[in-house]
Nucleic acid binder design. Structure first.
Lengths: 191, 191
DNA sequence: ATTAAATGCATGCAAGTACTTGCATATTAG
DNA sequence: CTAATATGCAAGTACTTGCATGCATTTAAT
């Protein structure tokens, strides 16, 4: 990937994050990338092509690889805290807004599977984690699928609400939120 | 509100829900409303004006009035279930998608306060509820602000994820989700 | 130093955008 | 019946869109 193409992709993704796909024009992109508009079409097939190459890049995806969860201690409290922190470290407000900006009918069929990968990775990690914790006899039996949805929904929900309403709704800080949530979950699962 | 204007508003809001504000053209609106395009501009100042009148209508807002929460029993389990059901009855996938469709820079300053009203209503209800429950001696002391965020984030998160990924991520049904979540919360708060 | 590739720039184009106008035709109210 | 109102229709405005091209200039490889 040459430097110019990368600048074009970066400009495109930033604009989509800020204004959405449809509202982002090729003129905007060229201006922000500091290149001439026609350069976009020499490097890429069309506007959509820029985005599709962008979402394939690590840089523009939350860096969700299996080794995120390496530090598992098999102890409910620190592990859930690690899990929520790992999510929030990666799913920044910028990433949330980009995901929403990519929800355009012209793109959605092609981008949705990629967008879904992030929550899916977290959900399947958590599910496996609880199953192993049960095997190890550290927690009792549960409807793990529902339990995982409760914990993940809460993590996702807080992240999204913070990105959208920026302390207007969620006055609780990230640290307080995680501390309180994990306490409720741990007591709720053990009790 | 005459019938024609209402048809125009309804068409506009449906299209924004499906395609977003920028991608929704006045030609689209006219076609879906079954009126001539110029009629839009006889009835409304401009495209934005249609949306702003739309978001003011009960019909296009989640019907969140104080009497939603009338059936409070002052018993943690049924009350939390009632709360989550009340939210999910109103915040349908259509409403979630409309809220996202309204996130256009051209509109957001004017629509954001309205969009925020719904979560705010639920958050402040829950906060007051827990404070009274503590006064009544039915639960111990907590950082209620954080606790409310945990419960609301989870409710919001599940609703949003269901609307976005439609059973692909959240295989858990609404009933199972509420049952499991409330159990965890109740045990987590009481334990 | 010579050559080939990459880029900037100006300009153009067909189509699409929100919005407007003038006029004909319905529907309704007094 | 008459007059006001609502709407349809066709055409047009001024502007923007994604996309394209020819030509000059810069950059980089040989």
């Amino acid at each position: 990937m040459d430097e110019t193409s990368q600048k074009i992709i970066d400009a495109t993704m930033s604009l989509i994050r800020d204004k959405g796909y449809v509202a982002t024009t090729t003129k905007d992109i060229a201006r922000l990338a500091g290149v001439n508009e026609c350069t976009l079409f020499r490097k890429f097939k069309n506007k959509k092509d820029i985005v599709l190459q962008g979402v394939e890049q690590e840089k523009w995806r939350a860096n969700v690889t299996p080794d995120i969860f390496e530090k598992v201690q098999w102890e409910l409290k620190p592990d859930l805290e690690m899990f929520m922190n790992a999510y929030m470290d990666r799913i920044t407000p910028d990433f949330v807004n980009l995901s929403i900006g990519l929800r355009a009918p012209q793109l959605y069929d092609e981008t949705a599977p990629l967008i879904m990968k992030v929550p899916q990775a977290f959900v399947s990690f958590l599910t496996e984690y609880f199953e192993k914790m049960e095997e190890m006899g550290k927690i009792g039996h549960f409807d793990f699928e529902s339990l995982v949805m409760t914990i993940f929904s809460s993590t996702f929900g807080y992240t999204f609400l913070s990105a959208s309403f920026n302390q207007n709704l969620a006055k609780t800080s990230r640290e307080e939120f995680i501390k309180c949530s994990v306490k409720v979950f741990v007591d709720g699962i053990s009790g």
